[in-house]
Nucleic acid binder design. Structure first.
Lengths: 238, 238
DNA sequence: GTTTTCATGTAACCCGTTACATGATTCA
DNA sequence: TGAATCATGTAACGGGTTACATGAAAAC
């Protein structure tokens, strides 16, 4: 496994960059707002936060006094712990943001990266998007090949399953195409017909250059869809 | 985790029902033809086979003599081991096939079930399909709700991610609708316009009653798409 | 003749979850 | 006052992969 926890670290850093938070809230954001990743349990989150603190990327602050600002010397007080990004943490996150290597093409990793595109530089966004697309295209190639080989042995349902699977991937490729086009259009700052100025709130400073979709009905929970098997195969031998 | 290995067992039994095979080949089929599941490694597969043998569902047979039919008493011979389904195994598989409970609505589980629809009774197929659909609709509901809550705080990219995710789920629901319709149409045996007699090979004895798609370009690798987080949350506190 | 692919196995390890423990705050 | 939610933590367990060991058959 390619360090799923790396995704957690990344996302935590990214969320905390926006504002300090305590663990519980962090987890909620991870599962809902960013709905992207299949949820992490506290058993993963809290230790992870500890690590980040140990690395000097976060500091723990006593939470904004639960109950009220208690002056009493309640030593064993189990207060909310608010985590805040340190300058080093910010720097580290920026470094993570800037890399657009093969890892960032992977399903869950990609989703996490995309979620923070608002804070990512345009060129990096492009590379990530294009990388993701090429990754999916490879996948499609494999699917087509494998299908060509086995096609006639398969029954209708199996075939239909494959067909639907492939269609999903193709659909994501088209989605990426749109995004890439928008990014490109947005690059020369003037607003092209396909990329009118942002109508939705833009957290980042960037212009709104996403493709238009029928505006009601945005969505809410899934990554571009775990699609192909990460294939632990590639064979054990050698 | 809801016993991912249960899926393996099911798929192994299902594949072996069609014909005896050895482990290596089994694994290939699991990753390509059925391309569905994110691949299992040998470290998982072989022990699993052992278990199935121990349960009396499979028997190991010396493979069709590697090299040539060797009569010599090579005791330490590392031959291919071909696994064959026992009558009990077949019975067990049929039992698994017949259950259409909530488990079978889940992402990977569903994909596995669908892959063996050719050997599944129509009523069961219907229940599985409908269950899956309701599961996805729940998911959509949650997504919509969570989105409604957080919408304005989100930036364009996050929103776009959510939108795309939701759209994927909606798309799968439509797919299921088509399938369900076809099943229903197929039930009264005469061939409706939407369900002409099978043109593709049908392994099962059933009539070809799948929805028609532009026929070239079936697909090849992915489950209906890991969509929503299984949500280990539901909160730890009871 | 050597590399690839086929083929079977196992033990160590890693990651993440489950289950539990604890306690404060808010709501009915 | 008791239930639900907020909130933090940890130890044990489990499932699955990685890496390794081994060797035959086929391809080059």
């Amino acid at each position: 496994m390619s360090r799923r926890s790396g995704i957690l670290e990344f996302a935590v850093l990214g969320l905390l960059r926006e504002s300090p938070m305590h663990g519980y809230e962090l987890r909620k954001r991870l599962n809902t707002s960013l709905g992207i990743f299949r949820a992490f349990s506290y058993g993963t989150l809290y230790p992870c936060l500890k690590t980040l603190v140990a690395n000097g990327w976060l500091i723990e602050e006593p939470g904004s006094a639960p109950e009220d600002a208690r002056a009493a010397s309640l030593a064993g007080r189990r207060a909310k712990i608010v985590y805040r990004l340190t300058p080093e943490g910010k720097e580290h996150f920026e470094e993570l943001l800037s890399n657009s290597g093969p890892d960032s093409w992977e399903d869950e990793h990609f989703a996490a990266r995309f979620a923070f595109f608002g804070q990512t530089e345009r060129e990096v966004r492009m590379r990530v998007l294009e990388g993701r697309r090429s990754r999916l295209e490879e996948r499609l190639e494999k699917m087509r090949a494998s299908l060509a080989r086995t096609r006639e042995r398969l029954d209708d349902y199996t075939l239909e399953l494959q067909r639907h699977g492939m269609e999903s991937v193709e659909r994501e490729v088209r989605w990426l195409n749109e995004l890439i086009e928008s990014e490109r259009a947005g690059r020369d700052q003037r607003q092209s017909p396909s990329a009118p100025p942002a109508t939705r709130k833009s957290t980042s400073g960037e212009a709104g250059n996403l493709p238009r979709h029928r505006d009601a009905e945005p969505s809410g929970g899934t990554p571009p869809g775990r699609t192909g098997p990460p294939d632990p195969s590639a064979d054990t031998a050698k």
